[in-house]
Write a protein that binds this DNA or RNA. Structure first.
Lengths: 341, 341
DNA sequence: TTGTATGCGTTATCAC
DNA sequence: GTGATAACGCATACAA
């Protein structure tokens, strides 16, 4: 006879044999203990322990035509901003029956598309993806996916399904308005890893400066290189060398802002009097820095938590209150932009 | 007849029908296109596209008795150190046929045990876990797992299977030796989130100080609170208030060290003359800081990459050169400990 | 190169 | 409350 060897590990049938019951009873005892009598349940649990039985999740997923997988795709693992949303997602799903499957798109849309395809192959219970800038194909795949989909870290009128985040345009605008209000005259923008969200921040920033009559395209400095503290320090030095009259800078994130602080200090510039600095996201270090750094505070943890709540609500059959949730942001004014006017 | 409804999505049989071939041909065309004639392959690919067919990975895993899942468990998602190893792991596995399944144990051994159990339920192709401080049960589960297991971020004589990292004891010792050599007299230790690895750093540090005749248990300050830049700034202030004679401090990680720098600057202390500071891990910001911060450089990315290589080697049937790999560390001396003697 | 029959380990369905 | 049986969707073994 044809025979196939399994993985060799004990199966539910082995447990059933040892406990002297049928497989389905074991299945029930493990999934919903209340459905099985105390007597049998005890015997089954013993057998499970003795055999060191671990249920095979793939077989379960196949038989029940549903998996407990939540697919999550972010563009970066080392960027603290996404890490905090991820932490919220893992915290919320961690204890329950769900498994989080994480993908790293590295800011490459085609990579994201590949990941979406792979994840959908697992018939996930839900999907969470960062941003609104998916390729058309990615979008269509997700629209056809028979599971809730949440986009995070951004807002927009036209979500794939649901969305929770904040407006990067408005955030950038708030930064610009603040610098203008503080009386800075030659206000620059320093942006690394210019992803679509950073561009929206820049657009908002431009609008604020144009409105304030301070817009100078020569004071926009961007690069696609990954942002880092070191890069911030380097670029601000170049920036100041090229335009010694620069007197304030909006960095597209906090790493760049901290780097700008260090770079200015090295150059002997005084913050906030010679030059004002504002970052974006308000990582915890911003308040601790010396001088403390102004930033746009966003609540990444809340975004992750909210995304999970929306998913759980849909999975439990409810209709979520809102499909579009704007959690906003908050300007945190600190020493780095508080100069004596 | 008894009938069960599947998920309703197209199956490999639907594709086979549409293409006018058998299911196994479709299966082959998708897994190894070279096994199928051009003619049929084209028809099959067309059918796949038209039906928007996505293979069901659970069914595949069940039928082939092997999954393409790599289980990874780390204690933190927001700690940059683990994030960088993770990035290496995702980079290495990302393109291939493997899927990384990530778990966050939050520094809780029982949580880690639960995650190991869950992951083993997926019959992973391999497991990667952080550190050597698993519970006995976790260790046994992993020893019985029929897949390669790599412990990362640490070294030790007795790995579960394979291990790649560096010695935290030796790293701490190197930091202590350096401070003694620089002529600092009252050398303290500032440690937050004292996990087992941090304790080993502290032990190495103690040994160096004892050897140098500078050990003072009153200068060891630790807390179990999560480390952060803000916390570093707060604690160094308390530390200096209690022991104004403190003239150097080894922080158990770089966030704490950066915080210590800011805290000292706020207190008007000059670095490195009034007080020397050394961190651990050498995150990129350490070199950019002003003054630049001395640290113990570790290569987290290489650790992750190495772990993947060991796994791939085993999975392809080879025997890895070594089961224990010590990637070491390197003292990076910078301004924060380079005082005029 | 292609197809047929069967098994992977679990759960849904129906019967007792 | 418990059990027998047939799916779940795909890949292996073997044959042609």
């Amino acid at each position: 006879m044809r025979k196939r060897k399994g993985a060799g590990r004990p199966t539910i049938a082995d447990v059933a044999n040892k406990a002297g019951v049928s497989t389905i009873t074991v299945s029930r005892a493990l999934r919903d203990p209340a459905m099985v009598s105390d007597h049998l349940r005890r015997k089954i649990n013993n057998a499970v322990r003795k055999l060191n039985y671990v249920p095979h999740s793939h077989a379960s997923a196949l038989a029940s035509t549903r998996s407990n997988i939540i697919g999550v795709i972010v563009p970066s693992l080392t960027n603290n901003v996404f890490a905090e949303s991820l932490r919220a997602i893992y915290d919320a799903f961690g204890q329950g029956a769900f498994q989080v499957q994480l993908g790293n798109s590295r800011y490459v849309p085609a990579e994201e598309e590949r990941l979406v395809r792979t994840f959908l192959g697992q018939r996930p219970s839900a999907m969470i993806v960062a941003g609104t800038d998916q390729t058309d194909v990615t979008r269509q795949l997700l629209e056809n996916a028979e599971c809730p989909v949440v986009q995070i870290m951004d807002v927009g009128d036209d979500p794939i399904d649901m969305i929770v985040g904040f407006s990067h345009f408005e955030g950038g605008k708030a930064a610009g308005v603040h610098l203008v209000q503080q009386g800075y005259k030659r206000i620059g923008f320093l942006g690394a890893r210019m992803d679509p969200r950073s561009y929206r921040r820049l657009e908002g920033f431009k609008e604020a400066l144009q409105f304030g009559g301070r817009y100078d395209p020569d004071l926009i400095m961007t690069t696609t290189v990954s942002s880092s503290v070191s890069l911030g320090a380097e670029l601000i030095a170049q920036f100041c060398a090229r335009r010694p009259d620069l007197d304030a800078v909006f960095c597209n994130n906090d790493d760049m802002a901290l780097g700008a602080l260090f770079g200015c200090q090295k150059a002997g510039l005084s913050i906030p009097d010679d030059i004002g600095i504002i970052g974006f996201n308000d990582l915890e270090m911003m308040a601790a820095a010396h001088p403390s750094l102004t930033s746009i505070r966003t609540d990444r943890y809340a975004i992750g938590r909210h995304a999970v709540e929306m998913i759980q609500s849909v999975l439990s059959g409810e209709t979520p209150d809102k499909k579009i949730v704007d959690l906003g942001f908050e300007l945190q004014v600190r020493q780095s932009t508080s100069r004596a006017k």
